[in-house]
């Protein structure tokens, strides 16, 4: 997943922005009233963008369904904004990670970092509340909850 940059637009909503595989910048504005706009930045002037489509809240769900995105992710993202100092992070296990074939129990992640692993996404399928004997593989996405310090500790020991 590419890095998503988030900018607040006071009185309007939030703009999420990322660079796609072809190198163009795309953005989604989530309005306070639930409307979504999908925008593309102009190659001529990188600060300008134009609206491609405007979606109502239910259109968004339809589109998400077609694109195969889980709604869980969005709900979690909303919770994440509500609570200060408690964050949820998606950390990918890189191929070179020393834990790429280790079980969660063996990694002792919670003891070492303070962050709890609450789910694993493997091939885009969620495995909620994985047991301690769940064996991580390279490419797994670890969903962890904790304060910002413990999450960054988790990222670094996973080899990110």
């Amino acid at each position: 997943m590419s890095e998503v940059r988030e900018t607040k637009l006071p009185g309007v909503g939030v703009r999420h922005e990322f660079t796609n595989a072809e190198g163009s910048d795309l953005a989604v504005i989530v309005h306070h009233d639930g409307r979504r706009e999908i925008l593309a930045y102009s190659s001529d002037d990188p600060d300008v963008c134009s609206t491609l489509v405007t979606l109502s809240e239910s259109d968004t769900q339809t589109l998400a369904e077609i694109l195969g995105v889980s709604h869980v992710v969005e709900t979690v993202a909303e919770i994440r904004q509500d609570i200060d100092d408690l964050a949820i992070e998606w950390v990918e296990v890189p191929a070179h990670s020393e834990f790429s074939a280790a079980s969660i129990g063996a990694g002792e992640f919670r003891t070492r970092t303070g962050a709890s692993i609450v789910a694993i996404l493997r091939d885009h399928k969620p495995v909620p509340s994985p047991e301690a004997d769940f064996v991580l593989e390279a490419g797994d996405i670890v969903v962890a909850v904790g304060d910002p310090n413990s999450l960054s500790a988790l990222r670094s020991i996973l080899g990110q």
């Binding site: 637009l9 006071p10 009185g11 703009r15 953005a27 504005i29 706009e37």
Partner: peptide, 24 residues
């Protein structure tokens, strides 16, 4: 200003957060 930004399709522009923050 919010009408102009919406009408001219500038809400996503990179200068827009600066404008909105000034209004706040």
């Amino acid at each position: 200003i919010s009408k102009v930004l919406a009408d001219f399709d500038r809400l996503g522009n990179r200068e827009t957060p600066a404008v909105l923050n000034l209004l706040v």
